[in-house]
Design a protein around this nucleic acid. Structure first.
Lengths: 327, 327
DNA sequence: TTGTAGGCGTTATCAG
DNA sequence: CTGATAACGCCTACAA
């Protein structure tokens, strides 16, 4: 057998042996444990040999010992009905989540779930520290939240769910539509709306209600319905309309080339730049959109777990819905 | 202290106790170990209590014991100079990688690296099974490949690197440009090219060479240079040009609205649908683009590790560059 | 200031 | 067919 890997992984034990100290000491030093006092000389010696042996800590072992992994999971639904705009949406969330994780010193796990039987097992399987959950089906969620190990911070996006146990970041659609109406000049005009199909039905009805439009003026985009979009847009000529999120907006813009209609996109993701010129936008107050807010909340929940709190009053007093307004 | 989580995590030990067998037996049964013969009745009993206790295996512990984690890492470079098109590119890769991982029964870890000092430590820290590496800087890579634990399958994308030790998936740009020339009618025409800025310089020079264009006709897109794009495109009026990858294509298309120029996009990612109508495309032979190919290669390398091979002849005989042609 | 030893949940090797 | 038991690498309370 050929020796492929040059140096076989050095462990703390190796360092301890080389530096003539115990593993515990090595652990103390490498982790900057503060309640331990270490002689400077020992510290240097250990640090030195650690470097020399090219020591790389095993986060796996650490996870097992500590009961948390330093990983955050981004979970979203997968469905046959997902069109490209949705994949891009998820992709963008993942990309952004990675940036935020990096800043926070966390690693990101990206996982799609079957929207018909979502499973959160991963959270416990991998000792995940926190979860960002996108577009959960209401019923499915209730089933699962029973088996779910509370204590792991979860923040929901694109989901209306009664359970006050979980924080939810939502766009304030009523405010957004009101603002849009105001800007585009009075509610007398003819309007239409295109939105992505969510698994979470309450989400959809809430949005549609907020728009105050009748169903004939609303187009729900899915892989199945997509082919009907051009025809729908044709019927909306002369009207002014709204597309929900940048990617849906992109598709609508592409499909409406040559048509005479005024398009406004509610930018909930934080990337209005992808839209072609000529498209109007309403944007989130803070850069980065929903995900940034959700992540921040999740972070602070993770933090407070390390404090002296026995249990987490997860979104009770302060309300479990965190609204985001557009401008 | 309030009891928040209902059932505390059941372990194999718990099951063993309840079912009056040993942990080993439980492990055998739960993992369908085939070289062990288990009485049917015992099997049922164990399976039953596992269900009853709502057992969820600890992949963390499994990783530690087995030395591999069931996770695959998607690593890419981060730079200040990354524009939105690049973030979308990474996002799309992540989204696609997740789908592929799911199909393969793997979990996906998404990680950005500082392109100036990339670090692969993660691979060993988390016992990652395989790595997809995007756009690595040649010099940096050499530094690191020393410390790198070979034996973990790595496949590179968007990178030209001499080291034959690693498989690399590359677009056959010469073929692509030839095809494009042929289709757009003769090489006599005036042409231009817009491409994203890669960290891997060889990649860029290779592409530019393949295009046979002089530097005045080539625009390298980065966050710094982006503002100059409209002006560049203005100068290219009447010419026909190429944009590399769908997202760069999208930006060029947006920026060239109203200008008279013919745009062709080399679709290397597998999502030509995002492009506005009127844009020509050259697409990869197989759906899904580079990532699918890279993933497939990585998978087969992971597989063959579980076989009886002592070491991996990683891309030696068969060549370490896997070209993808467009059509 | 440093060491000892038990534990985290699985896997895998031997014995029965 | 099943059961002990030693790894896996790290953390940490408790000794010394």
């Amino acid at each position: 057998m050929i020796e492929v890997s040059g140096l076989k992984k050095a462990t703390m034990k190796d360092i301890a042996r080389e530096a003539k100290v115990s593993v515990a000491t090595v652990s103390y030093i490498l982790n900057n444990v503060n309640n331990q006092v270490i002689k400077d000389e020992t510290r240097c010696r250990v640090l030195e040999t650690a470097k020399r042996l090219n020591y790389i800590p095993s986060l796996t072992a650490r996870s097992l010992a500590k009961g948390n992994s330093g990983m955050v999971a981004l979970l979203f639904n997968r469905s046959e009905r997902d069109g490209l705009w949705r994949k891009m949406y998820y992709g963008m969330l993942a990309e952004r989540a990675e940036t935020l994780c990096k800043q926070a010193g966390l690693h990101l796990l990206v996982l799609g779930m079957d929207s018909e039987r979502p499973t959160f097992d991963i959270v416990r399987q991998r000792e995940v520290d926190g979860v960002l959950l996108v577009d959960v089906k209401r019923e499915k969620f209730r089933d699962i939240s029973v088996h779910f190990s509370i204590g792991v911070p979860i923040v929901l996006i694109d989901s209306y769910i009664d359970d006050p146990l979980f924080k939810k970041v939502v766009i304030d659609y009523r405010q957004a539509f009101a603002l849009w109406m105001e800007r585009s000049g009075g509610s007398g005009k003819q309007c239409f709306l295109v939105l992505d199909e969510f698994s979470n039905e309450s989400m959809m009805t809430e949005i549609i209600n907020a728009s105050q439009l009748d169903s004939a003026s609303v187009f729900v985009l899915s892989a199945d319905s997509a082919s009907g979009l051009p025809e729908f847009l044709l019927r909306q000529q002369g009207k002014s309309g709204v597309a929900l999120n940048e990617f849906v907006g992109l598709f609508v813009a592409n499909a409406s080339q040559g048509l005479k209609l005024e398009l406004t996109v509610f930018c909930t993701i934080g990337c209005p730049e992808i839209l072609p010129p000529g498209v109007r936008t309403l944007r989130t107050e803070e850069d980065g959109g929903q995900l940034d807010v959700a992540f921040r909340i999740m972070r602070s929940m993770v933090e407070s777990k390390h404090k002296d709190v026995d249990y987490l009053a997860v979104g009770t007093e302060s309300g479990s819905y965190v609204p985001i307004s557009l401008k």
